[in-house]
Every structure is written in structure tokens, then in C-alpha cells.
Simulated scan of single mutants.
Amino acid sequence: MSRSATGLPFDDIRALVAAMPGRDEAAVAAIRARDAELTKPAGSLGQMETLVEWLGGWQGTPRPAVNRPLVAIFAGNHGVAVRGISAFPTSVTQQMVENFAAGGAAINQICIANDLGLKVFDLALDIPTGDITIEAAMGEAACAATMAFGMEATAGGVDLIALGEMGIGNTTIAAAVAAGLFGGTGADWVGPGTGLDAAGVARKADAVDAALAIHAGHLADPLEVLRRLGGRELAAIAGAVLAARMSRIPVILDGYVATAAAAVLYRLDPSSLDHCQFGHLSAEPAHRRLLDAMGKKPLLDLGMRLGEGTGAALATGLVRAAALIHAGMATFTQAGVSGKD
């Protein structure tokens, strides 16, 4: 039984989920009214128009803007990596964090191109989580504390946050979390990740199946799925998503791992991700399956599978463009253009 029944940390998470604010419908109505007056045929900008409604509805303003966007990357290491489930050693996680700091990663260039802030959070990389095939990844208090740490990413006047991750072995973790939340076997949810061959993918599936077996009986509770099968970067992302909701900050999620983290909140309350967009469809095969399970559609499909927030960052540029279009276009009256009779 989850210790949350005794009033320990997970109760605080549940209380926040129960208290989530909704969308500002008055702001959405005002955005739609202005859109009807802009110098274009109705609906001609397609999803760019609905993105503005989403942005303004969650920012709570009829004139939404993306002035202080942030890409937050959470980095964690995993005990299950000893099972041969990745093409790279866990030391690469720390090396990539250092590469982010030096400005040498793909995400750095995308942030420069789109004028995005970037923060990288090192989640105790020298202490991997428990090997999920034989024990829980985290205790409840540690999981809740990591979620609380993730919540801090939304501080400082951020008006849009894109969430990504770095962690060798974490597509195996994402697969385990997805299976724990939505059912199925390891083979249903694993993929090549960083470039595994068929034998490596089979090892991933076996690891997920072993984890599901050892934790069976505890997986009806989504927060137990997170602490038993997840990782620190997933817990931090879930915390950041929840904190953003409480502060009315729109969220863009990256690929498979970030989506698995957010799915924990979805299973607590399907409306908990209404303030989120899914930045892109990862080439990791099970990402589509996970999005479909939640009825979500990605903004981009570029065949990417890098992680580190890259897809979410590219999508942030799209959202910023949508906001600028809505704010900067002239109305028919302002431009002296004849409207539809």
C-alpha cells in the first residue's frame, strides 16, 4: 500500500492536482473575437490560431506573448543501466550535462536560434536510482522531494516552459512507466533508444517485464508507478508540469521520456495536461502509442529522437510565432482591407 494513505508526501501532490486552475475562457473568447477581425480568411492559419487560444487561455490574457520562455532539462541516472539496456555508459549523462554548459549540444543551438533561455538540472548523477528490476527506483519521500525540486524550474517570471531530459537508459524507464500506467508488456513499449540492435531491444523488454513483475500489485496508483519504475528526471518533469499549471504557465513537452513523466499526472486526472502541448513525435516507436493512449497530438513530426528538449524547443519557436502573428497583424479596419460581406 502507498504510504500516501498515512498523510506523507504524495498527499501533497494529490492536493495540488485537486486544486488545479482551469483555462481562462474569457481570454479565449477575446482572442477568437480579435482573430475574426484580422486580415486573413477565417481559419486560414489553422493550428496557429488554436495555439494562440491555448496560450492565452492558460496565461489568462487576451493578448498572449512569449517573452520569457525557458527550456528546462533534467538529467538523471538509472540503476537499471547495468542490465545492458543502452548503447552508451551512464558516464555520458554527466558528460552531456557538461556539454550543455559549454554550449556544444544541439539544444544550445536551437535555443540560440529561437532566443530561448536554458537551464540544466543535475539530479544527483553520481547516485543512480534503484535498479527497477529488483527494487523501487525511489522511496516515496525522495520521489516527492524530486517533484518539488522540479517545481522550482517555473520560478522567475517564466511565461512558457519547455521540458526535456537527459539520462542514459531512460527510454527503458519511460517504457516501464508507460506499461505501468497503461498496461502491456515490455515489447509493447521499448524501442532502439540511442541505437540498440535487436538483442539490445530484447534486453530492454526483458528488463521492463522483470520490473512489472516485481512491482505488480502496486501499480494501480500512478504515483507509485513513478516512484517504483521511474527516475529522478521523470519525477522532476512531473513536478514542473504541475507547478506550471498552478502558476498558469503553458508547457511544451519533449519526446517519449517527457511524455511518460507527464502521463503520471494524466492518470491522476486526465485534465491535468490541458495546459500542455506535445512538441514533437519522437522516432522512438512507442511515443505515438503513448500519445494515442492520452488522446494527444504532437505539434511537429521531424523524425527526431535526440531528447534534451530539442523537439520542445523547436515547437516553442512555433508558439512564439503564433503569438506574434495574433498580436501584430492588422485588423481589416486598421489596414483598410475589405472584409467578407
Results as ranks from 00 to 15, higher is better:
residue 335 A to R: 08
residue 163 L to A: 05
residue 338 S to H: 12
residue 324 L to N: 12
residue 89 P to D: 14
residue 295 G to E: 07
residue 83 R to E: 13
residue 302 L to G: 10
residue 286 A to M: 03
residue 84 G to C: 01
residue 39 T to E: 12
residue 332 F to D: 09
residue 284 E to T: 00
residue 29 A to T: 12
residue 27 A to S: 14
residue 262 A to V: 01
residue 144 A to V: 00
residue 253 L to R: 07
residue 199 A to K: 15
residue 178 A to H: 07
residue 186 G to V: 10
residue 327 A to V: 05
residue 85 I to C: 10
residue 199 A to D: 15
residue 48 M to P: 06
residue 213 A to Q: 11
residue 142 A to E: 13
residue 58 W to K: 04
residue 8 L to F: 07
residue 155 A to E: 13
residue 333 T to L: 15
residue 311 G to E: 02
residue 136 A to V: 03
residue 116 L to N: 10
residue 4 S to Q: 10
residue 4 S to H: 07
residue 169 G to Y: 02
residue 127 I to F: 09
residue 305 R to C: 07
residue 316 T to H: 00
residue 92 V to S: 13
residue 278 F to Q: 00
residue 262 A to I: 00
residue 275 H to C: 06
residue 170 N to A: 00
residue 208 V to G: 14
residue 105 A to T: 14
residue 281 L to S: 00
residue 179 A to T: 11
residue 50 T to Q: 13
residue 304 M to G: 02
residue 127 I to R: 13
residue 311 G to T: 04
residue 204 K to S: 02
residue 190 V to P: 04
residue 77 N to P: 02
residue 65 A to P: 07
residue 257 V to C: 04
residue 226 L to P: 01
residue 35 D to C: 04
residue 178 A to G: 02
residue 10 F to T: 01
residue 240 A to E: 08
residue 224 E to D: 15
residue 256 Y to K: 09
residue 62 P to C: 07
residue 156 G to N: 03
residue 290 L to C: 02
residue 232 R to V: 04
residue 249 I to F: 15
residue 155 A to I: 00
residue 237 I to G: 01
residue 122 D to S: 14
residue 105 A to E: 12
residue 334 Q to F: 07
residue 197 D to A: 08
residue 123 L to E: 11
residue 328 G to V: 01
residue 56 G to W: 03
residue 187 A to N: 02
residue 212 L to M: 14
residue 146 T to V: 14
residue 165 E to G: 03
residue 278 F to I: 06
residue 304 M to A: 08
residue 273 L to S: 02
residue 80 V to C: 09
residue 185 T to M: 01
residue 203 R to Q: 04
residue 186 G to W: 07
residue 133 T to Q: 06
residue 275 H to I: 11
residue 179 A to N: 11
residue 295 G to D: 08
residue 286 A to C: 05
residue 337 V to K: 09
residue 125 L to F: 07
residue 47 Q to A: 14
residue 295 G to Q: 08
residue 280 H to I: 01
residue 31 I to P: 05
residue 80 V to Q: 10
residue 235 A to G: 03
residue 214 I to S: 15
residue 23 R to I: 14
residue 137 A to N: 06
residue 278 F to M: 00
residue 155 A to D: 10
residue 111 C to S: 13
residue 189 W to K: 02
residue 26 A to P: 02
residue 61 T to G: 05
residue 47 Q to S: 13
residue 70 L to V: 02
residue 197 D to Q: 07
residue 274 D to L: 13
